[in-house]
Simulated assay, not measured.
Amino acid sequence: MCGSSAALRIIFSVSFMVIFFGGGLCEARMHVNVDIINDIGPNVQLGLHCKSKNKDLGTQYLAPQQHWGFRANLNVWETTLYFCRFRWGSQSQWFDILIANRDQKTCEHHPCVWSIRPNGPCRLTGHEECFPWN
């Protein structure tokens, strides 16, 4: 009797892991589109380098008012984080451009649009909200 009980527990555990990790929740994983706009000023090029713990998106250069963006899959624990280093003139600043538990609901159905300004980034999606540099 003890052997069959242990076997049932193993079957249940394996089935749960297959459903949980093999597609059940992973397929329902949400994504967010991030769009970054250079609003530093006229005639000022913006350099930026964005990455997460596991993914480096490389260096980009934006002319004034130019956009660049990326798509990020959010993990089920809502701990996804992307940060960017911004450089213009002699300035260098960084900011957490995507924090899952901050941005997920606001950017669920629309891209998370960020206006990068000298005083800090402003999220334009939803109601405009400006943040200080990190």
Rank of each mutant, 00 (worst) to 15 (best):
H67D: 13
R85E: 13
R102K: 13
Y82S: 05
G89H: 08
S115M: 03
P121R: 06
G89C: 10
G47L: 08
P64M: 09
D103E: 10
P121G: 04
S52F: 06
I99N: 12
I99L: 15
V76W: 08
W133G: 14
Q60R: 09
A72G: 11
C130Q: 15
P132V: 11
Y82M: 12
G23E: 04
H110G: 03
P121T: 03
S5C: 09
K51S: 15
F70V: 03
N75E: 00
W88I: 08
L8R: 03
T125P: 05
K105D: 10
V113F: 02
I40Q: 00
L124H: 08
I97Q: 14
L25N: 14
H127V: 15
F131K: 07
R29H: 06
V44M: 14
H67N: 14
V44I: 14
K55C: 11
H67K: 13
G47A: 04
C26V: 04
N43F: 02
F12P: 07
S15T: 15
S90E: 09
A28F: 08
G126C: 09
V34T: 06
C26K: 11
V44S: 10
T125W: 09
Y82R: 04
W68I: 08
G41V: 12
T125M: 07
V18K: 04
N101H: 14
Q104G: 00
F12S: 11
T80E: 03
T79N: 08
S13H: 10
Q66I: 07
R29Q: 11
K53R: 15
I36K: 03
K51T: 01
Q60K: 06
P42S: 06
T80H: 09
S52C: 08
R85H: 12
W94L: 09
R102D: 11
D39I: 02
S13E: 07
A7L: 07
F16S: 05
E128F: 01
I11F: 12
V34Q: 04
V76K: 04
A6M: 04
G24E: 10
R102Y: 06
W94E: 13
G24K: 09
S13L: 10
W68H: 15
E78P: 01
N54E: 12
H49W: 05
I40M: 07
R9A: 02
E78S: 12
G89A: 13
Q66R: 13
V18I: 14
F86A: 08
Q66H: 11
N119T: 13
S4N: 05
E78R: 07
L124I: 03
L8A: 00
G69Y: 09
P111D: 03
C122W: 01
I40V: 11
G120S: 07
I11G: 05
I37W: 02
K105R: 13
N134M: 05
V18R: 02
H49I: 01
I19R: 00
H31G: 14
F131E: 14
W133S: 06
C112W: 01
S115G: 00
L62S: 05
G126H: 10
E129L: 00
R87L: 11
V14P: 08
I10S: 03
G22N: 05
L62Y: 01
F70Y: 13
G120A: 03
F83R: 11
N134C: 06
E108M: 08
L98E: 14
I37N: 02
N54R: 11
L62C: 06
S4T: 05
P64T: 09
V76Q: 04
N43V: 09
L25H: 13
F21A: 06
P64Q: 12
